[in-house]
């Protein structure tokens, strides 16, 4: 319950933060919402010698539409997403997922950037961002770079972030008209990490067929999974039961669950299929203007 000692830094700018990260290398950890890092430190599973607290860096808490993208700054909290009009209007998928992350206290602190940067396949936003084809703006001592979400997750708890880099912004393309998304999550109890989570985003064409689809899977493999074959199978198809069933099966085939405290592997795989079908069904319904 008592973390190991560390030296605390509260840089006033991103540049200072990056400077500290460069100086201390692997010894340093970024602290934002703290809900991944602090529990690990309390259990003494993590013992960084330096904590770089970015919470007081100004200008990182923006959430805005710009240039065809939704741009979410590093310090935007889950509760901000929950309360955002643009999220509610254009990203029901994000809203679904956010509401199911932990609990109100945690959502007041936890950030979307931290949820991604932790590289935890059990976190919800990775799958959501895979479904939405997000890009991540990363800044480090070598400057700024933009990494597609598909290249971000490297291994369990490992991302494309170098030790002197900060995930500065999440950039999500604004979906075209007639789009919808949904997140389905099975939990052992409310607020828990997912047994299985499925994020689905679809755009329909004028005829009501699926123009494009994005599907991300939570906690069914060592990394967050983008169900590409399932996505591809949907393109150009009418969103009928047979189409969704097939996509569900392909998503299940793409999953790599293991048996753990949450559930056995066979159940998880079956639930990837079922939740994919349900998420797609609701995404389509939302794209059609329903709920």
């Amino acid at each position: 319950m008592i973390p190991p000692s560390f030296e605390y830094h509260a840089p006033g700018s991103l540049a200072d933060a990056i400077g500290l990260l460069k100086q201390h290398g692997d010894e340093a950890k970024i602290l934002s919402g703290g809900h991944s890092l602090v529990p690990l430190m309390k259990m003494r599973f993590a013992a960084p010698a330096h904590i770089v607290d970015i919470n007081d860096i100004p200008g990182l808490d923006y959430l805005k539409e710009e240039g065809g993208h939704l741009r979410i700054g590093a310090l935007v909290r889950e509760a901000d997403l929950e309360a955002s009009a643009v999220i509610a209007a254009k990203f029901p998928l994000i809203l679904d997922a956010t509401k199911l992350i932990a609990d109100p206290q945690v959502r007041n602190r936890a950030t979307i950037a931290g949820n991604l940067a932790h590289g935890d396949p059990a976190n919800d936003h990775p799958a959501v961002m895979l479904a939405l084809d997000a890009e991540l703006v990363i800044e480090g001592s070598g400057g700024e770079r933009v990494v597609p979400i598909t290249k971000f997750f490297v291994d369990t708890f490992e991302t494309a972030l170098a030790s002197d880099e900060v995930l500065k912004e999440v950039r999500i393309p604004i979906p075209p008209a007639k789009s919808g998304g949904a997140y389905f999550k099975l939990e052992r109890r409310v607020g828990d990490f997912a047994i299985v989570g499925v994020a689905a985003q679809v755009s329909l064409d004028g005829a009501g067929n699926i123009q494009s689809a994005g599907i991300g899977l939570t906690n069914v493999g060592p990394m967050p999974i983008k169900a590409e074959a399932a996505e591809a199978s949907l393109a150009g198809k009418a969103p009928n039961d047979a189409t969704l069933q097939q996509a569900g099966q392909l998503a299940a085939d793409a999953s790599k669950p293991v048996t753990d405290n949450r559930a056995p592997e066979d159940y998880k795989r079956a639930m990837v299929k079922e939740l994919t079908i349900r998420a797609l069904r609701r995404a389509v319904s939302r794209a059609e203007g329903g709920n």
Binding site: L186, R188, I195, A263, P264, D266, Y267, A270, M271
Partner: peptide
């Protein structure tokens, strides 16, 4: 009674 136990039976 975890849902997976019921699912196993139903399956």
């Amino acid at each position: 009674v975890s849902p997976w136990k019921i699912w196993r039976i139903l399956h």
